[in-house]
Computed example of a mutant assay.
Amino acid sequence: MSRTDFFEDPTAPKANSIVVAVSALVRDGQGQILMIRRTDNDKYSIPGGGMEIGETPTQAVIREVEEETGIRVTVTGLVGVFSNPDHVIAYDDGEVRQEFSICFTADPTGGEPRTSSESKVVEWIAPDDLAAHDIHPSIKLRIDTALAGRAEPYYT
């Protein structure tokens, strides 16, 4: 299913749903960030996705990272809660979702990078090289917030 992100766009459709999602900033021993290139919008992103019934947020992010990248992780911290009514995601089935994501930090514990139905590229990217990649502003905010090393979690 394809998606279109609308960010601070007055012509965006109105949200008709909100779903709890999770994401993770995963860094390797050299400080590189685990990134995917999404199949649904062709943008680079940190891995993540929707929570399923019966999961905790940390269980969901561990599952999502491994599903999308092949990398197993352990959660190490909370970056923040990101929900912006001016960021909606329109899917081709008619759903228009307001962004709501709990973002964590995580360390890799095993696995090998591989693509999935949601990721056409999986790679470790140095923070200084992020500007060369097409990253949605909402994901860039999560990355920048995590790299800033705030003492308290971010929230809107």
Rank of each mutant, 00 (worst) to 15 (best):
V88T: 15
P127R: 09
D134H: 02
D42L: 15
G77D: 05
Y91T: 11
G29P: 07
E52H: 14
V88M: 15
G48Q: 03
V96T: 08
P85F: 12
I102F: 02
V96R: 06
V61M: 05
P153T: 02
R3D: 10
A90C: 13
P137Y: 09
E52P: 00
P57R: 01
T69C: 05
A90N: 14
A131I: 06
T11Q: 15
E67A: 01
I125G: 00
E95Y: 14
E64T: 04
A90M: 10
D42V: 03
V73P: 00
F82I: 09
R63K: 01
E64H: 02
L34I: 08
V22Q: 02
Y154D: 04
D144P: 02
R142P: 10
E95M: 15
G49C: 07
I143G: 01
E52C: 07
A21W: 00
H133V: 06
I135N: 00
R27M: 10
T39R: 09
Y154T: 00
H87R: 14
I71G: 00
Q59N: 05
V19N: 06
S138I: 00
F7D: 05
V96C: 11
D92V: 15
T156P: 14
T11C: 07
T105N: 04
T115I: 13
P153F: 05
T39K: 09
L147F: 03
E123P: 06
I36V: 13
P153Y: 05
H133F: 12
